[in-house]
Amino acid sequence: MRVFPVYAPKLIVKHARIFLTGVIWVKDLGRLEFEKGRFLLPRKSLPKVKQAILELNELIEAQN
């Protein structure tokens, strides 16, 4: 598990694309899981977490 002390979308996306499957922890967002290079949306999450995951997945799609 990698810990990101700040929310840096480009760096987080780079990590997810390299490792494809895993878990990261982002300060103020908490634990985020990714599989096959995409972030998974938890069943229950705060609106800011949901927005961050959608933003990260959009960045991943834009890079493909």
Rank of each mutant, 00 (worst) to 15 (best):
E61L: 09
R2M: 15
V49R: 06
S45Y: 10
N64P: 10
Y7N: 02
K27R: 05
Y7P: 01
I53K: 00
E35F: 12
V26R: 00
E55M: 07
E33M: 14
K10Q: 12
L54K: 12
A8L: 12
I60F: 08
K44V: 06
V6L: 07
V3Q: 10
E58L: 14
K10F: 14
T21A: 11
S45N: 12
L29T: 04
K27S: 13
A16P: 01
E55D: 08
E35Q: 13
K36P: 03
V23Y: 13
V3W: 15
L40D: 03
K36I: 05
R17H: 07
I60M: 13
D28S: 14
R31L: 06
Q51A: 13
R43H: 06
P9H: 02
E61I: 12
W25V: 05
L41C: 08
L46T: 12
R31M: 06
A8R: 08
L56A: 00
T21P: 01
A52I: 08
V26K: 00
S45A: 12
M1N: 15
R2W: 15
L29C: 04
I24M: 06
K14W: 10
I18S: 10
Y7C: 03
I18M: 10
L46R: 15
E55K: 09
R17A: 12
R43Y: 06
Q51C: 10
G30M: 03
Q63I: 10
Q51V: 07
R17S: 11
P9N: 02
K50G: 05
R17Q: 10
R31W: 04
L20S: 09
V26D: 00
V26G: 00
W25K: 07
R43M: 05
I53C: 06
V26N: 00
I60P: 01
V3A: 04
K14G: 10
L29F: 08
F19H: 08
R17C: 06
L46A: 12
P5M: 15
V49D: 01
P5R: 15
I53E: 00
A62G: 09
K27M: 15
Q63H: 10
Y7E: 01
K14I: 11
K48H: 08
N57K: 01
L59D: 03
I60N: 04
L32H: 01
P5I: 14
T21M: 10
P42C: 09
R31D: 04
L46Q: 11
G22W: 02
R2S: 06
P9C: 03
K50H: 08
R2A: 13
I24P: 00
P47I: 11
K10S: 13
E61Y: 10
Q63F: 10
L46H: 10
F19T: 13
L11W: 08
L54W: 11
V23R: 15
L41G: 04
Q63L: 11
H15P: 00
K10P: 11
M1F: 02
N57P: 00
K50W: 08
Y7D: 01
E55A: 08
P42L: 08
Q63K: 06
V13Y: 03
E33L: 12
R31Y: 11
K14M: 14
K10H: 12
N64V: 12
K27I: 14
G22I: 03
E61M: 09
R31A: 03
L20E: 13
G30D: 02
K27G: 14
N57G: 01
L32T: 00
L29M: 09
K27Y: 15
E33C: 14
V3R: 08
K36R: 10
A62P: 05
L20N: 10
L56C: 03
I12T: 01
I18A: 09
T21K: 14
L41H: 11
A62K: 09
E35C: 13
A52M: 05
A62I: 13
K27L: 14
P42R: 13
K44C: 09
I60R: 04
P42A: 09
P5Y: 15
I12W: 00
R38W: 11
K48V: 07
Y7K: 01
W25S: 04
